[in-house]
Design a protein around this nucleic acid. Structure first.
Lengths: 96, 96
DNA sequence: GCAATTATTAGATAATTGTCTAATTATCTA
DNA sequence: TAGATAATTAGACAATTATCTAATAATTGC
C-alpha cells in the first residue's frame, strides 16, 4: 500500500463519490460517469488515480471496462488512521 | 466534521508526520518544527490546515503555542472509510 | 473493412497548494 | 520601555492537479 497515493486519491470529492457509487457492486466506466457532470476524459483521469492507489480494480468486458472496489486497501487506510491515534481502546491494527 | 477539510489535511505527508509526532502528547509549535527541514512559516501553514480540519487543538501558554491531537475527528474519518466499504463484518459506525 | 460505441491518452489551461522571505503580533524579562 | 524569543500573517512563486477539447485505441456488428 502506497500510503501517499491512497491519501491523495481520497482527497478529491469526485473520487470519493465514485467509490461510494461502487459500493453497490461493479459498474462500467459509463455507468459511473452517468452520475457526474464532468467529461469522460476527466472521469478517466480520476479512475487512473484510483487505480494507482489500488482502490479499484478493472476488468475489460467487451467494449466496456468494469470497475470494482478493492476494499482491503481502504481498510488498510482506516487502520493507519486508527493507529495515528492511541489511547482509544486498541482496535484494528493494534500495534502496541 | 467537514469531511473535505479532513481528507485534504491528511493528504500531505508533512501534516501526517506532524500528527504522528503529536501521538506522544502535546508539543509546542517549535518542538514540532524541530523535526522538519521547512521554515516556521510553512509549518504554520500546515498547522492552520490541521486546525481548520479540527484535527488538532491549540492553546497558548505564555509565548508558546501548544498543539495537541483531537483524536475524535480522525476516528470519525476512519469510520467514514469503513462505511465506504460494506461486507466486512460491520464494525465502527455500522449504519445499516 | 467500416461505422458506431466505449473508454483512454495527449496537450492546454486555470485553480490550488506548498514553500519561501519579510513583516507583524504576542509574550517574557531585564 | 526595549530587546529577545515564539509564532503567525502577507505576498510571491513554482509545482501539482482537475478540467476541458481533440485525437487515439479497442471492441462490436453490419
Amino acid at each position: 500500500m502506497k500510503q501517499q497515493d491512497v491519501f491523495k486519491a481520497m482527497a478529491d470529492p469526485t473520487r470519493r463519490a465514485i467509490l461510494k457509487r461502487l459500493q453497490g457492486g461493479a459498474l462500467t466506466a459509463g455507468e459511473i460517469g452517468a452520475a457526474f457532470e464532468i467529461t469522460g476524459a476527466s472521469l478517466s483521469h480520476h479512475f487512473a488515480v484510483l487505480k494507482r492507489a489500488d482502490l479499484v480494480r478493472t476488468e475489460r468486458r467487451g467494449q466496456y471496462i468494469v470497475y470494482s472496489l478493492n476494499s482491503t486497501v481502504v481498510e488498510d487506510l482506516a487502520r493507519v488512521l486508527f493507529d495515528l491515534f492511541p489511547n482509544r481502546g486498541g482496535r484494528a491494527g493494534d500495534k502496541s
